[in-house]
Computed example of a mutant assay.
Amino acid sequence: MSTPANIDALANAGTSVWLDDLSRDRLRSGNLAEVIENKGVVGVTTNPAIFANAMSQGTAYDEQLQQLAAAGTPADTAVFEMAADDVAEACDVFLPIYERTNGVDGRVSLEVDPRLAKEREATVTQARELAAKVGRENLMIKIPATEECLPAITDVLAEGISVNVTLIFSVSRYIQVMEAFIEGMSRAAGAGKDLTKIHSVASFFVSRVDTEIDKRLDEIGTDAALALKGKAGVANAQLAYAAFQDTLLNNPAWNALAEKGAPVQRPLWASTSVKNPEYPDTLYVTELAGPHTVNTMPENTLDATIDHGEVRGDTLSGTTDSARAVFAALDEAGVNLAEVWTVLENEGVEKFVNSWNELLGTLAAQLDAK
């Protein structure tokens, strides 16, 4: 296996590269194996929008849809039957990486129904069901970091299920996520679970922060405001990384768990494709490299990183002061940051729910036609 130089450089800086995409076509064509072999990818994330795109196109799912239709399977059950099969197959493809890295990488994520984003008990129940259905050690269940689901994150980890916490936008919410993680791992330890098998990442969204804040800076329109465009996303992630060091790495409660073999919950940079074409297309990769991190990328961002990314080693450590200065300037310019975080979380849930509902409608029609 020959890893591209820039992906190798990211790994040397401490950043694992995961692919933010999965489809049956990608699996069955051998493309996923090729991406692992030729592009240095060591994990995969999925979300409702990714599966909506995969299952709404082509013919890869037709045979299974025929079987599900014959069994009278409703659309919301069918979608998880198909998604779980894809994820299980992907887990098998990544198994050698999972074993080689002692479970740190070789991970595949599957998200709970986004309509459950404010329902703790239903989220825990579905996480348990999906983990059993996929039946692979290298699975991660994705749970949104809504206020209502923070206890669900703790509950699921306590049962020994690895978790990818998703839709994190603010540092304050991220700190709550890390606290939920520590509590979950503590409960798992108390229940006699093998902590070495319970892994977690915290998916901190980047580009959407710039999209929302840039819009507000344009509305303010002053020179000072406009000069801040494109700076918030990276600065926010840098502050998240500082919080990771303070709240987790330097936390005695966490260190006690680490001594028992618990793996650290790594920050994962998500939403890393640049939405503004004026910004460098590798902005959210090269500026966010550092120890104990993951960057999950759509393939176009991955290809750009391989082709012309300027990886400069650890670009996260030592950035706290400059990142704080960006946010002080945003506050001074008149950006209502508390409102930004609320809008982004609500929109994030809404986008996934809309994608899911569209997919369910499409699948219901396909099932009826079989």
Results as ranks from 00 to 15, higher is better:
residue 65 L to G: 00
residue 364 A to T: 13
residue 103 G to L: 12
residue 147 E to D: 15
residue 259 E to R: 04
residue 344 L to G: 06
residue 225 A to W: 06
residue 284 Y to C: 11
residue 139 L to T: 05
residue 226 L to P: 00
residue 89 E to M: 13
residue 282 T to G: 10
residue 124 V to C: 07
residue 198 I to R: 02
residue 160 G to W: 08
residue 14 G to F: 05
residue 138 N to Y: 10
residue 73 T to R: 06
residue 98 Y to P: 05
residue 97 I to C: 05
residue 260 K to S: 11
residue 290 G to V: 13
residue 365 A to V: 14
residue 326 V to H: 05
residue 138 N to E: 08
residue 136 R to M: 08
residue 281 D to R: 06
residue 346 N to K: 14
residue 356 W to N: 13
residue 78 A to G: 03
residue 72 G to L: 03
residue 1 M to W: 01
residue 228 L to Q: 01
residue 11 A to I: 04
residue 8 D to K: 01
residue 13 A to T: 05
residue 66 Q to V: 13
residue 340 V to G: 00
residue 257 L to Q: 01
residue 348 G to T: 02
residue 151 P to L: 11
residue 21 D to Q: 13
residue 335 V to S: 04
residue 309 G to C: 10
residue 62 D to M: 02
residue 172 S to E: 14
residue 61 Y to V: 08
residue 263 P to H: 10
residue 351 K to H: 12
residue 264 V to K: 15
residue 227 A to G: 04
residue 261 G to F: 04
residue 195 L to N: 09
residue 53 N to Y: 00
residue 96 P to Y: 09
residue 206 V to S: 06
residue 136 R to A: 15
residue 203 S to M: 07
residue 139 L to S: 13
residue 79 V to K: 12
residue 56 S to E: 07
residue 298 P to H: 04
residue 179 E to I: 05
residue 287 E to S: 15
residue 124 V to K: 10
residue 215 K to E: 13
residue 201 V to K: 03
residue 57 Q to M: 09
residue 276 N to T: 12
residue 250 N to H: 05
residue 181 F to T: 13
residue 76 D to T: 13
residue 245 Q to M: 07
residue 279 Y to E: 02
residue 247 T to D: 12
residue 60 A to I: 03
residue 260 K to I: 06
residue 280 P to R: 03
residue 272 T to L: 03
residue 178 M to I: 14
residue 18 W to T: 02
residue 154 T to V: 03
residue 194 D to C: 10
residue 6 N to A: 14
residue 361 G to R: 12
residue 296 T to Q: 10
residue 358 E to F: 06
residue 52 A to R: 09
residue 334 G to I: 09
residue 309 G to W: 14
residue 327 F to C: 04
residue 204 F to E: 05
residue 107 R to W: 10
residue 127 A to C: 15
residue 213 I to P: 03
residue 161 I to Y: 04
residue 63 E to A: 15
residue 233 G to K: 06
residue 149 C to G: 03
residue 324 R to A: 10
residue 144 P to D: 11
residue 136 R to P: 05
residue 219 E to A: 15
residue 214 D to H: 01
residue 108 V to F: 12
residue 198 I to E: 00
residue 70 A to H: 13
residue 150 L to D: 02
residue 259 E to Q: 14
residue 220 I to G: 04
residue 362 T to K: 15
residue 318 G to H: 12
residue 110 L to K: 04
residue 320 T to M: 08
residue 53 N to W: 00
residue 173 R to D: 07
residue 277 P to T: 12
residue 213 I to R: 02
residue 24 R to S: 10
residue 232 A to P: 02
residue 290 G to C: 11
residue 356 W to R: 11
residue 67 Q to R: 15
residue 88 A to M: 09
residue 135 G to H: 09
residue 74 P to T: 10
residue 150 L to R: 01
residue 242 A to N: 11
residue 56 S to Y: 02
residue 202 A to T: 12
residue 86 D to M: 12
residue 155 D to K: 04
residue 227 A to H: 08
residue 82 M to W: 08
residue 342 T to R: 14
residue 77 T to V: 14
residue 169 F to Y: 14
residue 42 V to H: 04
residue 281 D to P: 04
residue 319 T to W: 02
residue 129 E to R: 09
residue 308 H to S: 13
residue 301 T to S: 14
residue 83 A to C: 09
residue 204 F to S: 09
residue 248 L to D: 06
residue 115 R to K: 10
residue 17 V to W: 06
residue 119 E to V: 06
residue 194 D to I: 08
residue 118 K to R: 15
residue 273 S to I: 05
